[in-house]
Design a protein around this nucleic acid. Structure first.
Lengths: 342, 342
DNA sequence: TTGTAAGCGTTATCAT
DNA sequence: ATGATAACGCTTACAA
């Protein structure tokens, strides 16, 4: 029943139809709590808006309010399902509060370029996931609401997982199975989470009298290909460990694949662990033993935290920033042959 | 060296510093080709902008230009890596042209709600991926630039894969291996691509004298769980097919997993095919035989097409809307035992 | 209770 | 070649 076939309907049009002034329309429709308008007027406005199919222009609103109701989210790599889950968690929270997410894949372009573009778009804040705060010019961040993921900071808000515990839990699981000779596969990364996972693993192993010989520490990209390559190199060694900890599931899955095609029995000859617990982990055979990191929850919490910064009215409770992880013992880990079984 | 510590720097500030009027700043910096400004002035403005760290406000620009330089992308499910690739393809093209993607996961909220929100945000256009044009109120689309993915339309632009060929190619591969008794697993979906895949498969099978008995046609959601459930049901039948075509890789991977844990040898006792060729397909063991559908390319093309609609200046060449698919014969398909080998 | 006026930061159409 | 001036569609004082 729309009389206006001409593109966009503005508050002006609604006002005309309702026989009121344009600001009145704004007052009624913007849900301003302290808008004192007569019930009759309000109803006329609401109906007129409905009839015309009025949709407020967020650009205009943003201009005057100086807020875009958009937040940026920079993740390292959308090719990793883990980060897709982070995105989904954040997306859900953001959209529930009327915000959109502007997604940036760290693999495309530099972090600085992404931030630049987000700032131009007047985002109200950004969530930076393990994507090189280092790479982000300080001054760009200074004027922004920021929440970091997996990157502890004194000045900025952040959330993350208990990465050191992740490494430790993995080590403890393998140690309990009798393993003492370990391999470790992952990049020589600046990423805090990766470093902490390694540290947790390393310390637990060292504390239990285990060892990681240096040729068993393989530095490769944190990808499936990296994992596959690392295992090939490892198997070429004169001696090999009985268990390998991979820095994330992608690496572990690459490693697993490489083992299977090399005829290594898993977990009979070699135990393999990943970290993250992406969906894929349960789809390979045998199912990947790993450490569950709550990706969606991390994304959701980061978003919630950012929204708190943006809307001071919201309750300022500060829930734990560090989310717990837990062991997911599955099919790629088993006891050392001939070792005492727990 | 910024003198302004007060939040945002506007074109006004730049103008003041450069000793020119604000519109001149706009003229210089908006890259308007027919901007006739003195070289000296231009330089002063550019330097002033740099010194102040000026960043144009896209909201304001959008308001006057009546364009947001944002496009919406609605995909059915970000949990399916296939659609993540579609997103990545579109993202790359969009951002290369200065657009952002506003991503909507069909799993969260209704299509209508997503469109509503996108329109409010003044997106310049939307890409709808197999997400129920049906569910989208006609009038919402009327005023919008739209490109459909995997949903042929007379009125609207669209791109997609050759879904019927995908089904046919799968069938031909299995037929060539000697199979004549087929199962088929997938949802009773409204999705055009799924229907076409089925049709292609069905026709090729029928044309070659094969059969799909009705208990071998399992209707389940297009998910890993669906695939797993379908195979369990299939294996419970008194007779079983020698090969099963799954509507997509997720389903096939679920089916594979279910077979392996039931002790069915793949491909010895049963051949399994998927469709899409997501990365995961090469990570399971044995590697999944499937049909490669160029997800990123589809996303990229959809975005390109939309941008063409938005910027009439761009070259209007209309490349193929239907992208070819190709067989990826891998480890889950093999000859029927005792059948003549091709 | 409602209308009037101002302004958010741009771009575009004029004069100058 | 550059500077006023007027939108763009909205929110928010301030008047009436």
């Amino acid at each position: 029943m729309a009389t206006e076939s001409t593109g966009r309907v503005t508050a002006h049009d609604v006002a005309a139809r309702a026989g009121v002034s344009q600001p009145t329309v704004s007052l009624v429709l913007s849900g301003n709590p302290r808008a004192r308008v007569a019930a009759k007027t309000r109803e006329r406005v609401v109906r007129a808006a409905e009839e015309l199919g009025y949709r407020p222009n967020l650009l205009a609103r943003g201009l005057v309010l100086r807020r875009s109701f958009a937040i940026g989210l920079v993740v390292p790599d959308l090719g990793n399902p883990f980060f897709v889950d982070v995105v989904r968690g954040a997306e859900r929270v953001a959209s529930a509060s009327g915000y959109v997410l502007l997604l940036c894949d760290g693999r495309e372009g530099t972090a600085a370029a992404h931030l630049e573009s987000l700032l131009t778009r007047q985002v109200d804040g950004v969530i930076l996931d393990a994507s090189g705060l280092a790479a982000a010019p300080e001054d760009l961040l200074a004027s922004l609401n920021v929440v970091l993921i997996e990157e502890p900071s004194q000045r900025l808000a952040w959330v993350g997982s208990d990465a050191e515990a992740a490494g430790r839990v993995a080590a403890e699981h393998l140690l309990a199975l009798g393993h003492r000779d370990f391999g470790m596969v992952g990049p020589a990364s600046q990423l805090h989470a990766f470093r902490m996972r390694e540290r947790g693993f390393f310390r637990a192993v060292a504390g239990a009298g285990g060892q990681i010989r240096s040729p068993w520490l393989r530095r490769v990209p944190a990808t499936v290909e990296g994992g596959a390559a690392a295992i090939k190199a490892l198997l070429a060694q004169p001696e090999r460990p009985t268990a390998v900890f991979c820095i994330n599931d992608l690496v572990a899955i690459g490693a697993l694949k490489s083992c299977l095609s090399a005829g290594i029995r898993i977990p009979g000859e070699l135990s393999l662990m990943g970290c993250d617990d992406i969906e894929m982990a349960r789809l390979v055979t045998p199912e990947l033993s790993t450490v569950t990191v709550p990706a969606r929850e991390i994304g959701a919490r980061a978003a919630r935290r950012l929204l708190q910064q943006l809307e001071p009215s919201a309750p300022q409770r500060s829930p734990a920033r560090v989310l717990p992880v837990r062991l997911a013992a599955r099919g790629t880990t088993g006891p050392v042959i001939g070792s005492p079984q727990p």
